[in-house]
C-alpha cells in the first residue's frame, strides 16, 4: 500500500482554515461570556430562589444535561425557524451553545456555592450585609474561585463541542474542514491538520482561562493555592 502524503494541498487552503478558526473562537468567546452569566444567575436562583424558580431551573438543567447537544442545536436553529422565527445562523449557534453550557455552568457554580460554609453567611449577616451584598462578596466570589478549574475544563470542552454546530451549517473550523476535504479528497491530511489546530486552540483557551483567573482572583495570584 502506497500513500503519497500531500499536506501542501490542504495547507493551501489556509485562508479558509483561518476563517474557520476565527469563527470557532468567536462562537466560543460569546458562548463563554453568556454561558457564565446564565450559569451564575441560575446557580443563585437554584440555591436561594423561590421554590417555583428553583423548579424551573432544575428542569432546564436536567433537560439540557440529558439530551444531545446536536438535538438541541437542531431544535434551536431548524425547529424554531419552522415556526417562522429566523435567526442569523451564527446567532442561533451562539444561543444553542449558551443554553447548553449554561446548564453545565449552573451545576458547577451551584457546587461552589454549596461548598461555602454556613458560618460565612452568619458572619456576613451579623456584620449587617444585605443578602445581595452577601451573595456578591461572600458567596459568589469564593464559590467561583473554588470551582474555577472545573469551569475552565468545561469551557475548553465547549470550544471542542462547538464543532457540532457545523452540522446545522455554521462554517466554523470543522465545517470548513469538511469543505476542504470534499474538494481535495485529502482525508488523512485534513484531519491531522484539524487535530493539530484544535489542540492549539485548546491550549489557547486553557491559557486564556489561567490568565483570567490570575487577574480576577488576587488570593490565588498571591498564594497560588486552591481555596
Amino acid at each position: 500500500m502506497i500513500y503519497n502524503f500531500d499536506f501542501g494541498a490542504v495547507l493551501a487552503y489556509w485562508p479558509l482554515l483561518l476563517e474557520g478558526v476565527w469563527t470557532t473562537l468567536r462562537l466560543t468567546l460569546f458562548s463563554t461570556v453568556f454561558g457564565i452569566l446564565v450559569g451564575a444567575f441560575c446557580a443563585v436562583v437554584r440555591t436561594g430562589g423561590p421554590a417555583w424558580a428553583r423548579w424551573i431551573v432544575s428542569l432546564y438543567v436536567e433537560f439540557i444535561r440529558n439530551t444531545p447537544l446536536l438535538v438541541q442545536s437542531y431544535f434551536l436553529i431548524f425547529g424554531i425557524a419552522s415556526m417562522g422565527i429566523r435567526l442569523p445562523i451564527l446567532l442561533g449557534a451562539v444561543i444553542a451553545l449558551t443554553v447548553n453550557i449554561g446548564a453545565y455552568t449552573t451545576e458547577i457554580v451551584r457546587a461552589g456555592i454549596e461548598s461555602i460554609h454556613r458560618g460565612q453567611l452568619e458572619a456576613a449577616t451579623c456584620l449587617g450585609l444585605s443578602s445581595t451584598q452577601t451573595y456578591l462578596h461572600v458567596i459568589i466570589r469564593p464559590a467561583l474561585e473554588r470551582v474555577y478549574p472545573a469551569l475552565s475544563s468545561q469551557y475548553v470542552l465547549l470550544m471542542l463541542a462547538s464543532s457540532i454546530v457545523s452540522s446545522v451549517g455554521v462554517e466554523e473550523l470543522f465545517g470548513i474542514s469538511n469543505r476542504i476535504q470534499s474538494e481535495t479528497y485529502r482525508n488523512f491530511e485534513i484531519f491531522v491538520v484539524l487535530g493539530v489546530i484544535y489542540l492549539l486552540l485548546a491550549v489557547l483557551v486553557r491559557s486564556g482561562f489561567a490568565l483570567l483567573g490570575l487577574a480576577i482572583f488576587p488570593r490565588r495570584r498571591t498564594l497560588g493555592t486552591p481555596l
Binding site: 458560618g119 452568619e122 481555596l227
Partner: peptide
C-alpha cells in the same frame, strides 16, 4: 464565633 469565619478570599 468559635470558628472565626473570616472570608478566605479577602
Amino acid at each position: 464565633f468559635q470558628s472565626y469565619n473570616l472570608f478566605p478570599h479577602l
